[in-house]
Simulated scan of single mutants.
Amino acid sequence: MNQTVKKKQTLFPAVAAAIFNEQGEILLQKRRDVGQWGVISGHVEFGETVESAILREIREETNREAHIKRLIGVYSSPTSQTYHYPDRSVQYVTTYFEAQLTEMISKDFSKEETLELQFFKTDQLPDNLAMMNPHWLRDALSQTSQVFIR
């Protein structure tokens, strides 16, 4: 008997942050779990607001405090926000902020989830980027007060 096993499907609230330095370069994290580069991001924990969640994620991943400069947008498109794992599929609804570090990160920084942190020129990003919304960088660089819903 050919039986198809349906993967568990979950919807998770998530947060992400675009963090720029004074030269306009964007901070990317090379994640230990997938070995790919991406913006600082994570899950919203029960009892947290999205604002407190992103500030906690920044603190956990960089060992630095930050403040939120603006809301960039909310990303929920199944095309760019669904990840397929061996046992489940997860669609993230990601609240995306621009944040600023209160002090610079130390060189050669690494932590449990972070292999490396590095600022990149926005036109010279690494090849091995994690899957993200195709508009993530353009939206972050936008100088309008528009909040993007994607």
Rank of each mutant, 00 (worst) to 15 (best):
P126R: 00
I54R: 02
S110K: 14
Q91Y: 06
K107N: 11
S76K: 13
A99R: 01
T102E: 15
I72C: 09
V90S: 07
L125Y: 07
R88N: 04
I58G: 04
L55E: 09
L71A: 07
V74G: 03
L55R: 07
V90R: 05
R56W: 00
Q118T: 06
T62D: 03
Q124W: 00
Q81F: 08
A53R: 04
S80L: 08
T122L: 08
Q81E: 13
G47F: 07
I105W: 01
E48T: 06
E51D: 08
D127F: 11
S80D: 09
I68M: 01
R56G: 10
H84L: 14
T102H: 14
K121E: 10
S76C: 12
L117T: 05
Y92R: 13
M104V: 14
S110Q: 14
I72T: 04
A53Y: 04
E61Q: 13
F119K: 01
E48S: 07
Q124L: 12
K111T: 15
T102A: 12
G73F: 01
E112Y: 14
I68T: 05
F109H: 01
P78C: 06
E98K: 06
S80G: 06
E61M: 07
Q100Y: 12
L71E: 02
D127T: 13
T49N: 04
H67W: 10
L125I: 05
R56V: 01
T102M: 15
I68D: 04
Q91G: 05
I54K: 04
Y96H: 09
Y83L: 12
S77P: 06
V50F: 12
Y83P: 03
E61C: 05
F120D: 04
T95A: 07
I58W: 02
L115T: 13
Y96A: 03
T62P: 06
T114L: 00
H67P: 02
P86T: 04
T49G: 03
I72V: 14
S89Y: 02
V74R: 10
Y75T: 11
E45T: 11
Y96F: 15
N63S: 11
V74N: 06
T102P: 05
K107I: 09
T49I: 00
E45M: 12
N63M: 07
Y85W: 12
A99T: 03
I68A: 09
T114E: 04
T62N: 00
T94H: 08
E103M: 14
I105P: 05
F46I: 13
E57W: 03
F119I: 02
S110I: 09
R64F: 05
P78M: 11
P78W: 05
A66L: 07
Q81R: 13
V90I: 14
E103V: 13
K121Y: 01
L101K: 01
H67N: 10
E98C: 02
A53M: 08
F120L: 05
Q100E: 14
S76A: 15
A66E: 07
E116L: 08
P78E: 00
R64L: 00
G47P: 03
S76E: 15
K107T: 11
G47R: 09
S110V: 01
P86Y: 07
S110Y: 11
T122E: 08
Y85I: 00
